[in-house]
Design a protein around this nucleic acid. Sequence first.
DNA 1: AACTTATGTGCAATCGATTGCACAAAGAGG
DNA 2: CCTCTTTGTGCAATCGATTGCACATAAGTT
Lengths: 356, 356
Amino acid sequence: MARSRPTLKDIAERAGVHASTVSRALNPATAHRLSADVVAQIRDAAAALGYRPHGAAASLRTGLSRSVAVVLPDLTNPVFPPIVRGIEETLAASGFIAILANTGNDPDRYAAIFERLMSRGTDGLILASARRDDPIVDRCIAESIPLVVINRTVDRGGVSAVINDDDRGAALAVQHLCDLGHRRIAHLAGPQSLSTGHARSRGFNRAARSLGLAAADLSTVFADTYTRDAGHRAAKRLFRDASQPTAVACANDLLALGCYDALRDVGLRCPEDVSVVGYNDMPFLDLLAPPLTTVRIQHEEMGRQAARILMQHVEKPAQQPFDVVLRPELVTRGSTASLRRSSQVEARSTEPAFEA
Amino acid sequence: MARSRPTLKDIAERAGVHASTVSRALNPATAHRLSADVVAQIRDAAAALGYRPHGAAASLRTGLSRSVAVVLPDLTNPVFPPIVRGIEETLAASGFIAILANTGNDPDRYAAIFERLMSRGTDGLILASARRDDPIVDRCIAESIPLVVINRTVDRGGVSAVINDDDRGAALAVQHLCDLGHRRIAHLAGPQSLSTGHARSRGFNRAARSLGLAAADLSTVFADTYTRDAGHRAAKRLFRDASQPTAVACANDLLALGCYDALRDVGLRCPEDVSVVGYNDMPFLDLLAPPLTTVRIQHEEMGRQAARILMQHVEKPAQQPFDVVLRPELVTRGSTASLRRSSQVEARSTEPAFEA
DNA sequence: AACTTATGTGCAATCGATTGCACAAAGAGG
DNA sequence: CCTCTTTGTGCAATCGATTGCACATAAGTT
């Protein structure tokens, strides 16, 4: 009944030419070597038959699949969807397809995913899941598999990376808090095994030092994952001490949400008692109570760049790796307030806690 | 330098057998037909050489790629990431890979994506982007391409679908508002070209009628897309009239967020002046001001079911299509309040607007 | 002991597209 | 008019894995 898909041979028969000619006619890169009328005839025949190229066959012969894998820890972290969208759109515009895989932060699954992707003939990898010391990255380099790390980078070189200037981003946050008059500032740090956690901590400390903040006024707690829950637990430790900070710079928005949770636990208000800054500017932060001040990164642009660079590596294997470092910016919202204003608000505490 | 990937032939040579034997040894479904020691020897040789199957070659021969495409309107709509995660995890557990594509609600792009996916030898499609009348669905059926629609379904039959009981979900929302004493209830409806928009509107009307609400007290405005912005525009119309509703049941959380925006525009407060209910229970609604009461759907479970069903269709083409209808539940949060309590709060308006 | 059946492995064709090489025809140059 | 290019197309091998068929050997039957 359902006649099977037409092949090049079928088109060739219909157009009265050889299959190889059809192949050349249908490939824009080789079509110019044929006479125009033959090409037209073949195109017509192909259209008439409803021809669809057979990717697997082409892939077998050429060794390329025009598919790229995007590996990330967990898609439900809201920072990733815009990145993935940027990647997917850019790939699609060049006829590439995007394969998606979540590691769930599980090294075994990470390794299994890698194997599966490689045996599926993926042309290259975009890793948003890289740790500073990442065995998969090492393997890709050893096997010269095109690779781009995104958002997070690795300590070793030899890999193209699209990242943010996290050092600077953290500094923006500290500067902002300092401008508002805060001196006892805490850092709710992310996992130090990830370049983002590490770089943001470093940026925090450098900035604090260069602003002349006293070491005794600074404190740092570490969250072991970038989750609201881990942020909650870590932040609790922060508010247990006597030397409570008046401001917290968080390494990530989810951690900041956890910080909100902790503040609520101990009965402190944001921003009246404690200012909070996040990092990433994930969607809908403007609707929170209070709207979260955060460091904005260029999600979609990161994705677009990474896709573009990866395709370069795929199409030109000799391409040397390079980094793209994007500039973050501070987005000021309601979760940060000046010390002065904070105390005023504190004085007349019957006021609505948060205003639009 | 870099010796190319080992093939079955290489393993065969090393193990002193024929390539076909290697193929059988490495395939769990056929390995039992070989003697145990030959299998062991071949496995060792394969491991020693670091063999990785060549998916494209297998795919060419078998016609199956063990890859499934997930097509959705826009990944940055927060309702999708959990669904996609459920899909991807379930597929991965069975050795399938997930290809991701965003249509951006653009019919041309949608069609192009379909062509690209098909020529890539995708085994089947999970469509989260289906309209009630969807040409791509028709084509899949015509070409007997395994297909599952998810979240939204189509009017025509003949397709497996994993959806929610939207009728019931909408009824839960209306019932809740009614229980709180609301009578002038509005419906902020979604696109009627989508089954969700349509079913939720129907559910709203049916429930309102069966609760004995007066037709004059009810009103409906339509948003043309499921976006915060469209919700904002539609909700504005709602509050322009004299006969303002005291409660709004929205067809979607993003529309509800737009409703928040509109309330802010006209200076009405939620929930004191107007109660708002969303739909979907997308992440982080609990952190909004006020936390959004909404109808929760089982995101991940939908994804898991869809993946499971699609794999069934792929592996058993004779499988008849069927529906899975999941049951939604109401999640009560701060955006809804009883009429009585609302007026009380209104009376002493110096109180904090929202409490934890 | 001869004969049937089961079991394990090899052989070779096949999937569909691509591409180096060969070659015919047409045009250019002397 | 003959040779030398250039241009356009065909031929056939190839990519790597799978699988129906054939066949040899071993096991079981009478």
